[in-house]
């Protein structure tokens, strides 16, 4: 039987979607003993919820500060222990930061940003996009200890329910030597609370076709109706119409929502790199030759300023019924 340790990210109360998906992957591994690692303020409360995901033991670190590489790496090292263990985490900014260092400490291999996983420890196979989704590689590892980070939204979210209270193993906040200490001096929050692109189910995205910063106002009502995140092309970012946080693509965010609606985006290869794994792609573009139509599932060839408001109204009607 293998031990699977899932790093569970949270906001003090709710479990992050990508972590719930990782818990689902853990539970799908036959006969695995699922454990979790929870770090941060409110860790104990989050730990108590994890029985419903099939977790039997939680390593909890009650910690008041901001994310710190040394603390996270040290806690994960304690939780992993000495024996065989498959360590799973959603490929978030935290995991991207500590997972490689954990690999060095545990002297075990790591693979990142995978979209499929099969097998069990000793014979795990994973699939992951390379060349920005222009190809997929399958990799196999026979290691008994392994770290795997999962692309957000590439895995289904499990049903939570039942399960007993997990055993809690409280871990003291690890000591970090001075030479390794990083200090967060300031947290810069965005002006508005936007839905995180990487975990969004629906993304409404705008490009040069929206015509200017105010063009995004045409997309906002639709974004709201759909409960979507707002994306953009790099050209719109470079034009200064929208902040870089919204950029989707090779040098922006990589997203795989259920529904991606590209409005006035031509579909350059670098843009497609960030969104081609979306389940359903809709393109609204007045140029029938725009390459975005090659990868879209549905398209409308027309002026987006005529389409989007009517589309929003129609969606609102469907949602209301």
């Amino acid at each position: 039987m293998s031990r699977v340790l899932v790093y569970v990210e949270h906001d003090g109360e709710a479990i992050r979607k990508g972590s719930r998906q990782a818990l689902g992957v853990a539970a799908s591994i036959g006969g695995a003993q699922v454990e979790a690692l929870v770090i941060g303020k409110g860790a104990a409360g989050v730990a108590a919820k994890l029985g419903a995901y099939g977790v039997t033991k939680v390593h909890a670190v009650e910690y008041d500060g901001a994310y710190a590489t040394g603390v996270w790496t040290g806690a994960a090292q304690s939780a992993a222990g000495d024996g065989d263990c498959l360590i799973l985490a959603s490929h978030t900014s935290f995991a991207r930061d500590f997972a490689p260092r954990l690999g060095a400490r545990l002297s075990c291999p790591q693979v990142s940003d995978i979209v499929e996983l099969s097998g069990d420890l000793g014979g795990i196979e994973v699939k992951r996009p390379i060349f920005a989704g222009k190809a997929f590689e399958t990799l196999k590892s026979e290691a008994g200890r392994l770290i795997v980070t999962l692309r957000p939204n590439a895995f289904a979210e499990p049903e939570a329910g039942g399960g007993g209270a997990p055993e809690i193993n409280e871990i003291a906040v690890p000591e970090v030597p001075a030479a390794l200490q990083t200090t967060v001096i300031e947290v810069l929050k965005p002006d508005t609370e936007e839905i995180d692109l990487t975990e969004a189910d629906v993304i409404v995205s705008g490009g040069i076709g929206v015509g200017g910063p105010e063009g995004f106002d045409t997309l906002r009502p639709l974004q709201k109706t759909l409960g979507a995140a707002l994306g953009s092309s790099r050209a719109a970012v470079l034009a200064g119409w929208i902040s870089p946080d919204h950029q989707v693509g090779q040098t922006g965010k990589t997203v795989s929502p259920q529904l991606y609606i590209a409005c006035g985006i031509s579909g350059a290869i670098q843009h497609r790199a960030g969104m081609s794994s979306s389940k359903c792609i809709v393109a609204i573009n007045k140029d029938p030759q725009a390459p975005i139509f090659e990868i879209a599932d549905y398209g409308i060839v027309a002026d987006l300023f005529k389409v989007v408001p009517a589309f929003n109204e129609a969606i609102a009607k469907i949602k209301a019924s």
């Binding site: 291999p109 693979v111 997929f136 590689e137 399958t138 196999k140 590892s141 794994s277 139509f293």
Partner: peptide, 18 residues
């Protein structure tokens, strides 16, 4: 730690339903 056992291009899309 890993060896590559497969390599594939993404399935071709058939083009949008306009």
């Amino acid at each position: 730690g890993f060896t590559r056992t497969g390599l594939a291009l993404p399935p071709a899309k058939t083009g949008a339903k306009i």
